[in-house]
Simulated assay, not measured.
Amino acid sequence: MAKFVVDQAHSALGFEVKHMMVSKVKGQFGSYSADVEAADLTDLTTASIAFKIDVASIDTRNEDRENHLKSADFFDVENYPTIDFKSTSITRDGDDYKVTGDLTIKDVTKPVTFDVEFGGKGTNPWGVEVYGFEAEAKVNREEFGLTWNAPLETGGVLVGKDIKIKVELEVNPAA
């Protein structure tokens, strides 16, 4: 098994959620670490993948919203500073993959499956092999204890239940 590193300058860990039942709020986490090991990343079924996300690095382009998300109403970063994911199985789905693993938010761990598309393999101008992947999963935030909400005068709620997690990765062999 070889170790691979995520090129964070060419990767992103993001999310989107319905806002006021009419639009979407998007955000990302700027700080995270990843452990990726595989015999061959052109066949992701050989891989073991783990992520640790620094929740305090959340960026939604709105400081007030970010501070609320970091509070005990949502992520409670003082007590739960990371979101963690560890793969438990990886299977082929045609040319793509299903990566299932344990996702831990706050003190709740649940299985989540990401639909993963292999973007390809190339060699950068410095002779280093790079691999690209895009992944997406949908989770119900309330199942992870993120239950805060506010009713709207017109009916409905301020924040949707379903969160789309979107991951874009460029990885290369560890030096």
Score class of each variant (00 low, 15 high):
residue 107 D to T: 05
residue 41 L to Q: 11
residue 116 V to W: 12
residue 11 S to A: 10
residue 32 Y to I: 03
residue 105 I to Q: 07
residue 41 L to Y: 10
residue 163 I to Q: 01
residue 155 G to W: 04
residue 42 T to R: 11
residue 162 D to E: 15
residue 99 V to F: 06
residue 68 H to I: 09
residue 38 A to S: 14
residue 83 I to E: 01
residue 81 P to F: 06
residue 113 T to M: 06
residue 7 D to L: 11
residue 68 H to Q: 15
residue 48 S to E: 15
residue 5 V to S: 02
residue 54 D to Q: 15
residue 82 T to R: 04
residue 66 E to T: 12
residue 76 D to A: 01
residue 29 F to I: 07
residue 104 T to D: 13
residue 15 F to A: 01
residue 164 K to T: 15
residue 96 D to Q: 05
residue 93 D to I: 01
residue 135 A to F: 06
residue 132 G to N: 13
residue 46 T to E: 13
residue 86 K to G: 12
residue 86 K to R: 15
residue 174 A to C: 00
residue 19 H to W: 02
residue 158 L to Q: 10
residue 77 V to A: 08
residue 1 M to Q: 07
residue 25 V to Q: 04
residue 93 D to R: 07
residue 13 L to V: 12
residue 131 Y to R: 11
residue 35 D to I: 04
residue 171 V to C: 07
residue 79 N to L: 08
residue 41 L to R: 10
residue 26 K to R: 14
residue 173 P to V: 02
residue 122 G to Y: 03
residue 88 T to V: 09
residue 14 G to M: 06
residue 75 F to C: 09
residue 167 V to Q: 05
residue 122 G to N: 09
residue 95 D to F: 03
residue 158 L to D: 01
residue 96 D to K: 10
residue 119 G to M: 14
residue 23 S to N: 02
residue 106 K to L: 06
residue 55 V to T: 15
residue 14 G to R: 08
residue 86 K to V: 15
residue 147 T to E: 06
residue 19 H to M: 02
residue 121 K to I: 06
residue 28 Q to A: 10
